[in-house]
């Protein structure tokens, strides 16, 4: 209960200090529940079509263990640095938040770069979206996640710009916390892509 940082109110973190802040964070959790269902439909589609390669390349032939491990480690580490950024935000340390968030974004961009390179390689090998039902399912599932990461990078940049200008207020702290939740959630989705698409894809 004790206010550890001078910036936080006695009742807890700044982002929860107003009723609006609390409600919007709760609202974001509801949105994440809907996102789980959205991704579940794409996972279901991919998993039932995994074997339908129409004579084209199979997942075993396409996936490179080294590449998807690097993608996974980049995203896992970015989730960790994002957590550290929110921790600095709660201490009221703007510089710390900015630095950890910049690292998070660089790791996120590294992930996107790897993913785009992977997609370009597949397409150049004749394994594009329309080659087989398996590849349609693959590109839609992994691509939807990639689009979320891209959106996340842009969104976080906007929030960082606002914090650079206004510092931490109940509003900017709430935005920083919510973008953090979004980023961690994208890592959660990736864990299931890593497991159900890549790891499963190299053995079956």
């Amino acid at each position: 209960m004790a206010a550890i940082s001078e910036k936080a109110t006695s009742s807890g973190p700044l982002e929860y200090s107003t009723e609006e802040g609390s409600l919007k964070i709760f609202g974001f959790w509801i949105f994440l529940g809907a996102e789980i269902v959205l991704f579940a439909t794409l996972f279901a589609t991919y998993l039932v079509l995994h074997g339908q390669t129409a004579g084209g390349p199979t997942s075993k032939e396409l996936f490179e263990v080294r590449d998807f491990m690097i993608e996974t480690l980049l995203l896992l580490t970015s989730s960790f640095t994002c957590g550290l950024a929110v921790l600095e935000m709660r201490k009221g340390n703007k510089k710390g938040y900015m630095a950890w968030m910049a690292i998070t974004l660089l790791l996120g961009l590294g992930f996107l770069g790897m993913e785009i390179r992977e997609f370009v390689t597949y397409v150049s090998e004749g394994a594009g979206l329309s080659r087989s039902a398996f590849l349609s399912g693959f590109f839609i599932l992994v691509g939807t996640h990639g689009a979320h990461v891209s959106l996340g990078v842009l969104w976080i940049l906007c929030v960082m710009a606002q914090i650079a200008k206004r510092g931490f207020t109940p509003m900017t702290a709430r935005k920083a916390f919510i973008t953090g939740l979004y980023w961690h959630f994208l890592d959660v989705v990736w864990i299931f892509i890593f497991t159900a698409v890549y790891l499963t894809g190299v053995v079956t």
Binding site: G33, E35, I36, V37, F39, A40, T41, F43, A44, L47
Partner: peptide
């Protein structure tokens, strides 16, 4: 809310 989302996700994936 999260548990309900997970329930729908599991039903969708496992059911399919």
């Amino acid at each position: 809310n999260l548990l309900y989302g997970i329930f729908v996700a599991v039903a969708t994936v496992a059911g399919s």
